[in-house]
């Protein structure tokens, strides 16, 4: 049994002009100690998937279908108070901007102690010792000194470490990291990613790493899910998806990444833009931009098709189509 299982998750936003489906029929699983990268453009639904898992969708957004199971137990229908106990305790979350994730009016030690006290039975003195341990664990130098600092006295990288320390307070089984390095310098970025990887190795913590940066995924994740217009386009092992992408969208994404040492005249780019949620085309959402689109892509929506080492939501990989193509040839 995987640590986290998401089945056919659907997130809707009712609006005056009809219901927007921001996340549609998304399924994946994360094992203990595994880093799953979720990649996609802005608006692909990757952050919302993470937000839905921790139960913090902003109303009127809501989980309209599917199941989310943590350690085999459903958590998507829990009453708010029980869900709150899971947040922070079993699932930690890290958000994009460390500069704004910390309350500017409280010392970082106070914020960590507060979180520790919420999830454990420790005394305040013990909680402070735990806070010190956490700060050391995430690599904050002179933690004894830093613990009494206010967020504005720390650099961006330091603040993101504090944010990670806060997410780790109660030894969660899963950490959802939403663009944890986007706001940071490249050198700091590498350190933070290394820290996340180490968590999986040392504590068996699973990480769902949401990012738009394929480079970050390739460096950090074990498996990767590529999202497009609210759906999963392709999911599989990093080596597979990055090395031999199948979905035309993933192929396009890979073509747009500059690689040192690769003999490449120029970067390719995917023509057009991701459709808005209000006008997702019939059939495959990627069909307007797909160089390989054929009749069926404009008629039916492809569900993820299981392959040897992953899944691809593309009709070109349907058994019947594959057979037909072979027949043509």
């Amino acid at each position: 049994m995987a640590l986290l299982e998401v089945d056919n998750l659907r997130v809707e936003f009712p609006t005056r002009r009809g219901t927007l489906v921001a996340v549609d029929d998304v399924s994946f699983a994360i094992d203990e100690g595994e880093v799953l990268g979720v990649v996609g453009e802005s608006g692909a639904g990757k952050s919302l998937t993470g937000t839905a898992i921790i139960g913090l969708l902003e109303p009127p957004g809501r989980v309209a279908g599917g199941e989310i199971r943590l350690e085999g137990k459903r958590i998507d229908k829990l009453p708010p108070d029980q869900m709150r106990r899971i947040r922070g305790a079993k699932i930690g979350a890290i958000f994009q901007d460390p500069l704004t994730s910390l309350n500017p009016l409280y010392r970082i030690g106070t914020q960590i102690v507060e979180t520790v006290l919420t999830h454990t039975d420790l005394t305040p003195t013990k909680a402070r010792m735990r806070a010190l341990e956490l700060l050391k664990e995430v690599g904050i130098p002179a933690a004894e000194h830093r613990i009494d600092h206010y967020p504005h006295q720390l650099s961006g990288g330091m603040r993101q470490r504090v944010v990670i320390a806060l997410a780790l307070c109660a030894n969660p089984r899963l950490i959802i990291a939403d663009e944890p390095t986007t706001a940071l310098d490249v050198s700091i970025q590498a350190q933070i990613l290394a820290l996340l990887r180490r968590l999986g190795r040392d504590h068996g913590t699973a990480v769902m790493l949401v990012t738009h940066d394929m480079g970050v995924i390739a460096e950090t994740a074990h498996r990767v899910a590529v999202m497009y217009a609210g759906r999963i386009a392709e999911i599989g092992a990093v080596r597979q998806v990055v090395g031999r992408p199948r979905h035309p969208y993933t192929v396009g994404l890979m073509g747009s990444i500059p690689a040192v040492g690769r003999d490449q005249e120029r970067l390719t780019q995917i023509d057009g833009a991701m459709p808005r949620l209000t006008d997702i085309p019939r059939g495959c959402a990627f069909n307007p931009r797909c160089p390989h689109a054929f009749d069926r892509c404009f008629a039916d929506r492809p569900d993820p098709i299981a392959m040897a080492d992953g899944k691809v939501a593309c009709w070109r990989f349907d058994q019947a189509e594959a057979a037909a193509e072979v027949g043509h040839a």
């Binding site: 709150r84 106990r85 922070g88 994009q96």
Partner: peptide
Amino acid sequence: RTDFIKFARARGLSDRSVHFGHALKN
């Protein structure tokens, strides 16, 4: 609407603490 309130919720703090400890003070 700020990130640190969202993060405070993500940390599992109680509504009371989020609303009065974190939001009101700001």
